[in-house]
Amino acid sequence: MEPHLQPLVSIIALNYNQTNVTCEFLESTKLLTYRNFETIVVDNGSTVNPTEQMNAGKYPNLKILLSEKNLGFTGGNNLGMQHAKGDFIFIVNNDTEVTPDLIERLLEPFFKDDKIGVVCPKIRFFHHPNVIQYAGFHKMNLLTGRTGAVGSREEDKGQYDGEGPTHCAHGAAMMVKREVLDKVGMFADKFFIYYEESDWSARIIRAGYTIYYNGKGLIYHKESITMGKESAIKAYYHTRNRILYMRRNTNKLQLTSFLLFFTFFTFPKSVLKYTVKGQFEHLKSFLRGTFWNVTNSSYSTI
């Protein structure tokens, strides 16, 4: 595909009781210099219907999909992708603000290499606008089941302005070629939230595609630089999906090593931490997340 063809881009963002924040994101899209796009906002069962407020903003080519319940990050984005018409799908958090040339920057690598399936921009913290959140991901540590973002919390001095393959896409901002959806499928719904982009990235890479980082593209994310205190629900999904990711994306030897590490290091450490801090709801969530993988021993690899 040639750059001058200006392919249709479908921008997908989720809204859950954050209509004002979502409208701030939509306002930022008015500044995009690339104009051949549609925007799909999936409302994940908010207590107040956001349609009237969003339509009042007169955002171009906006489609609002209302879900009766919270489908999570996976289900909400999957619903949006089912309705998307674009040649490329830009999955983006509603608590971000785009920069004017972002779409062009994200599309550039696709025109150079047919094997590129996903492109992500540099992500900086909105409230600390010169501090990096993401400039690619390090390789997943198959012993611990954890990874980290390249450049995380570093001051941006241009050290990550380059481009190249990376190990994982970031769910806050990822441009996906439609061909990938057709051949790999969408997010695995069972993740709901957390580790879903890691799982999808692993499947995309196994299908022969490259996950790519383009540091010339930039987006600002309103997530706190300190990430705040871990909630009990986050403890549940992080624990559950960390194990689930490893079950789906490792061989028997790698999985055995991880389970030994989790059993003899992570499990006792986490139980002790939550007990000492008196975080008994967190402890219950951690245990629920762990034993979910025992009671749900069968799973699909797609």
Rank of each mutant, 00 (worst) to 15 (best):
A56L: 12
T166M: 13
M174Y: 04
I132F: 14
E163M: 14
I204C: 06
F137W: 15
R178Y: 12
V92H: 05
N55V: 02
P3E: 11
S285A: 15
C23H: 03
V21G: 01
N93Y: 10
R240C: 10
Y274Q: 03
T256A: 15
W200E: 03
K63R: 12
Y195N: 10
K63A: 06
V41T: 05
K139T: 03
Y160S: 04
T263P: 02
E97M: 10
T29Y: 01
L14V: 03
T99N: 04
H221R: 08
R153H: 14
P268H: 14
V98H: 05
M175L: 15
T226S: 12
Q279N: 13
E104F: 13
E24R: 15
S285Y: 11
A235N: 02
V276P: 00
S300H: 08
E104T: 03
A232P: 10
D87M: 08
G278Y: 06
Y245M: 13
N251M: 12
T47Q: 15
V271D: 03
E108H: 09
T47F: 07
I243K: 05
Y160F: 15
T144K: 13
K190Q: 11
S300F: 11
G72K: 07
N44Q: 15
A56N: 08
T22Y: 12
T51H: 06
H127M: 13
S152I: 07
Y220G: 00
K63N: 08
E155A: 13
Q82Y: 12
F264H: 02
M246A: 08
F88P: 00
Y213N: 01
I103M: 06
K269Y: 15
F286Q: 01
Q279E: 15
L26N: 00
E196P: 10
F126I: 10
T226V: 10
M186C: 11
G136Y: 09
N78D: 02
F258K: 06
I11W: 09
Y134T: 12
P165E: 11
A169P: 00
T144G: 05
L32A: 05
G215Y: 07
G86W: 03
C23D: 07
K269I: 09
E281I: 11
Y212T: 00
F264E: 00
R248A: 12
L62S: 00
E230Y: 04
R146F: 13
T19H: 11
N141Y: 09
T239G: 09
I193M: 14
L253T: 06
F126R: 14
T51Y: 04
I205M: 11
Q82N: 12
M175P: 02
K139I: 02
F286L: 07
D182P: 01
S285H: 13
K234I: 07
V9R: 03
L5R: 07
L8W: 03
E230A: 13
H238V: 09
K234C: 04
D199V: 04
L32D: 02
T266Q: 14
G217I: 00
K252Q: 12
K183F: 00
L32I: 03
Q254Y: 08
L102T: 04
E97G: 01
E196L: 12
G158C: 13
M81E: 03
K222H: 15
M54H: 02
I225C: 04
I12M: 08
G148V: 12
P121I: 08
N249H: 15
N61V: 01
L255T: 05
I219C: 08
G151C: 14
V42K: 01
F110N: 00
K69T: 15
